[in-house]
Computed example of a mutant assay.
Amino acid sequence: MTKRITIDLGRQSLTIWEADQPLAVYAVSTGRNGVGEQSGSGCTPRGLHRVRLRIGAGCPPGTVFRGRRPTGEIYDAALAAAHPERDWILTRILWLTGCEPGCNRGGGVDTLRRYIYIHGCPDTEPMGEPRSHGCIRMRNRDLIELFDQTRIGMPVEIRE
């Protein structure tokens, strides 16, 4: 059976499916600026996407990423206090690419070029409310569970 992911922006939830059966539902946090596809908007893009890259397999929980590469740091309160300006990308990254030309692929609406990910964040960040810069944030333990069930090319639908 083929697995797929749906992200419900209204419910702030992510579901992984196998056929028509939900395997798991997770609370997420999406774009604080709402929905939209325009580059620089800080919004979460809608429509059909695919997992383009899976980054961070085997990294310890709390691994800090910058530019999609592990920095060698593990997130903790002291690191957070030393760098309060950072938008923390932790543990794993599922980098998305849009599948709909003119909607979320190409030009000023390209999800891949906007660096839209499903990624981990500090446990102090609330889930269930939009607070990200456009990405889909998850609890680190939930992300590891999801990551282990994903593959490159897996469909991801983001809907209102």
Rank of each mutant, 00 (worst) to 15 (best):
K3I: 07
K3N: 05
I5W: 10
I5A: 12
T6R: 04
T6E: 14
R11H: 06
Q12N: 10
Q12L: 06
L14S: 11
L14P: 07
T15K: 02
T15V: 11
T15G: 10
D20L: 08
Q21V: 11
Q21S: 15
V25Y: 13
A27F: 07
V28A: 07
N33P: 08
N33L: 12
G34H: 02
G36C: 13
E37S: 14
E37Y: 15
E37I: 01
S39G: 09
G40I: 00
G40H: 02
C43G: 04
R46P: 11
G47M: 09
G47H: 11
G47K: 04
R52K: 15
R54D: 09
A57F: 07
A57H: 14
A57Y: 01
G58I: 01
G58V: 09
P60S: 13
P60C: 09
P61H: 03
G62K: 08
G62D: 15
G62A: 07
T63S: 05
V64H: 08
R66V: 12
R68V: 03
P70Q: 10
P70D: 09
T71H: 03
T71F: 01
E73C: 00
E73S: 01
I74C: 01
D76M: 00
A77S: 12
A78H: 05
A80M: 03
A80G: 09
A80H: 12
L90D: 11
T91W: 04
R92Y: 06
R92F: 05
I93M: 07
I93A: 11
W95A: 06
L96V: 12
T97S: 13
G98L: 06
C99E: 15
G102H: 11
V109T: 13
V109N: 07
D110W: 00
D110G: 04
T111V: 12
I116P: 02
I116K: 01
G120L: 10
C121H: 03
C121S: 08
P122L: 09
T124E: 15
E125P: 00
M127N: 05
P130R: 10
R131W: 02
S132R: 00
H133E: 13
C135T: 06
C135S: 04
I136C: 11
R139Q: 10
R139G: 02
R139P: 03
R141D: 14
D142H: 04
L143S: 00
E145H: 03
E145G: 01
R151T: 15
R151W: 14
I152G: 07
G153Q: 09
P155G: 12
